[in-house]
């Protein structure tokens, strides 16, 4: 269990190195958007990002030592939250805009062309504003992203086999490591002890907003798919189905 002996500093440097490269949509965007064209661009980008997300997760120290079942379950639970936090990070210095990729930026108003998406854009923009007010640091951002992944599924069923039990224990120790890492990152900012505690609380509370927006987004995407506004395929389809089939 090398991650338990890893210092918070080392843990952060490993997850900083795991960061996926910048991704481009690489499509000729025809403006104004239609409902179908915007949904297609959004889902094409999400599908590309998902492939990189799997590689990213595998680079989180200790993740690949979890059981394969836990790895799959965690990713299926949190993928949209991870995509949304990444979007917030890219958009943090651009008030009122959502920077999906360097070549795909949307203003709040552009959300008007997709039924029901402006509400989600507004929630994304609100959470992004909170991160802007808090002056979220890159080290904190990477910790939060790892926290989302590792905290995404606290299974209700108790582990049945030794393998499941070991994986569950590893997961809990990994969560300890990532919390330690976030606490360490906050401690570098030159705040008073009380301010550090408050910051940790505020950052952690933002995660519940992200979960909420992700649930809204998941419903929206499955509705768009059901109404044939957009054709969802490939890895994105697999990840979406994992959520819609378990909730219905």
């Amino acid at each position: 269990n090398h991650q338990s002996t890893m210092s918070p500093e080392e843990f952060i440097s490993r997850i900083m190195e795991a960061e996926p490269p910048e991704i481009y949509l690489m499509e000729d965007l025809k403006k104004p958007f239609t409902e179908a064209s915007m949904m297609m661009s959004l889902t094409n980008l999400a599908d590309k990002e998902l492939v990189l997300m799997i590689s990213w997760a595998k680079k989180i120290p200790g993740f690949v030592e979890l059981s394969l079942a836990d790895q799959i379950h965690l990713l299926k639970c949190c993928w949209l939250e991870i995509l949304m936090l990444g979007l917030m990070w890219r958009s943090v210095d651009h008030p009122g805009k959502l920077i999906f990729s360097p070549d795909f930026k949307l203003s709040r108003e552009e959300g008007q062309c997709v039924e029901g998406i402006m509400e989600i854009f507004d929630m994304l923009l609100a959470a992004t504003s909170r991160f802007r007010e808090l002056k979220l640091q890159r080290e904190e951002y990477v910790c939060l992203k790892a926290m989302i992944l590792l905290n995404s599924n606290l299974s209700t069923s108790s582990p049945q086999t030794t393998e499941e039990l070991e994986s569950r224990n590893k997961l809990l120790r990994l969560l300890d490591s990532v919390i330690d890492a976030l606490v360490w990152a906050i401690s570098k900012l030159g705040l008073s002890t009380q301010q550090q505690t408050l910051r940790l609380g505020h950052l952690a509370m933002l995660l519940s907003h992200i979960r909420h927006v992700s649930n809204k987004g998941m419903d929206h995407l499955s509705n768009m798919k059901r109404k044939n506004v957009v054709l969802v395929y490939n890895l994105l389809l697999e990840m979406l189905d994992a959520n819609t089939s378990s909730s219905s």
Binding site: S55, L68, K76, N234
Partner: peptide, 13 residues
């Protein structure tokens, strides 16, 4: 094999 499983089980190049 699902795509997710495939991506998780392939060794990094």
């Amino acid at each position: 094999h699902t795509k997710l499983l495939q991506l998780l089980t392939t060794k990094p190049e």
